[in-house]
């Protein structure tokens, strides 16, 4: 672009054209990339942004749109304070947190143990089992909720968050197990043999070697289990009708929409508040995840 960059083409016109065209190709690639990324970002971020805008408006402003709806004329935090001071909404939040923490814990314990057994202890049928575990993940929850309804009902756990703690792992365990099998299988066999000779038993091998070495996989699986549980919609819709047992996802829509009256401002504020924990978890774990991946790669 500068004078010095243009000089080779004066001396060697053929070569110069080549370099120039390469550079131009690079530029086009960059421009295309930027444009598509910007478009994607706008498409992705427009809904949350619109939610934010709406959550800051009064009901009067929402129901009486004048001019563009993309700006707030009269910003207010009333929707947030109303929700936060509402014990029912706080109840939804608590229910989601309790269910999610338990589901993540149960899922990780089961899937790490299962993956360790399936990846390392060769026993009759372990290969078939590993495939079977993955196949169960392919059955959609919209198909499963009817039989599960009967099971949960039989256990007398309908209308209870404990029922959710029971059924969410049916979605999260197979996938997490499958992720962990992949990670564990990539750990060289000699590592367990070295640990065996060093005196480790199976449990120590798992806790002191496999879990630390497969930490990136464990974090990926944790994020997945967290997402499944936090964002679950079909199961709680089917199994929970009592407001005090509802998690956020259905609590917000069922309690803030009464008949045809949509409390849009509160709905949006509720949805944004509900989206905060995943954002925080992702931000925190992602850093850790990347730190784990690159640890020691550049040091020394």
């Amino acid at each position: 672009m500068s004078a010095s960059a243009a000089r080779p083409s004066d001396v060697l016109p053929g070569l110069g054209r080549k370099i120039g065209s390469l550079r131009q190709e690079r530029r086009w690639a960059l421009i295309t990339a930027y444009i598509s990324l910007v478009v994607a970002a706008i498409v992705m971020l427009a809904p949350p942004f619109y939610m934010l805008i709406t959550s800051l408006k009064t009901s009067a402003e929402i129901s009486n749109p004048v001019g563009t709806p993309w700006i707030v004329r009269d910003p207010t935090l009333a929707n947030y304070t109303a929700l936060i001071s509402d014990p029912m909404f706080r109840g939804f939040f608590w229910n989601s947190i309790i269910v999610t923490v338990l589901v993540v814990a149960v899922t990780m314990v089961i899937s790490v143990l299962a993956a360790f057994a399936l990846a390392r202890m060769k026993f009759f049928g372990s290969q078939v089992l590993a495939t079977g575990v993955f196949l169960t993940y392919l059955v959609p929850d919209t198909l499963l909720f009817i039989p599960l309804y009967q099971i949960v009902g039989g256990l007398d756990l309908l209308n209870s968050k404990w029922g959710l703690v029971l059924v969410y792992p049916t979605l999260s365990v197979p996938f997490c197990t499958w992720i962990m099998i992949g990670y564990f299988a990539s750990i060289p066999k000699e590592l367990d043999e070295a640990a065996l000779i060093d005196g480790a038993n199976w449990m120590q091998m798992l806790t002191k070697i496999f879990i630390p070495v497969a930490l990136p996989g464990i974090i990926a699986a944790t994020i997945f289990a967290f997402t499944v549980s936090w964002a679950a919609f079909v199961y709680p819709t089917a199994f929970i009708t009592r407001p005090d047992e509802m998690p956020l996802t259905i609590g917000v829509v069922s309690q803030l929409i009464r008949g045809d009256t949509f409390a849009w401002g509160q709905l949006m504020a509720g949805a944004l508040l509900a989206a905060m924990p995943p954002v925080i978890v992702y931000a925190f774990l992602m850093d850790y995840y990347i730190a784990g991946l690159t640890a020691g790669a550049t040091k020394g």
Binding site: E190, E193, A194, A195, L196, I197, I209, V213, G296
Partner: peptide
């Protein structure tokens, strides 16, 4: 007798050091 009780030590071709 399991490996840990044989009082032996082994060095592997790919070293098998614990990476973490």
């Amino acid at each position: 007798v399991p490996p840990r009780d044989r009082d032996i030590a082994m060095v592997f071709q790919n070293y098998a050091l614990y990476p973490h």
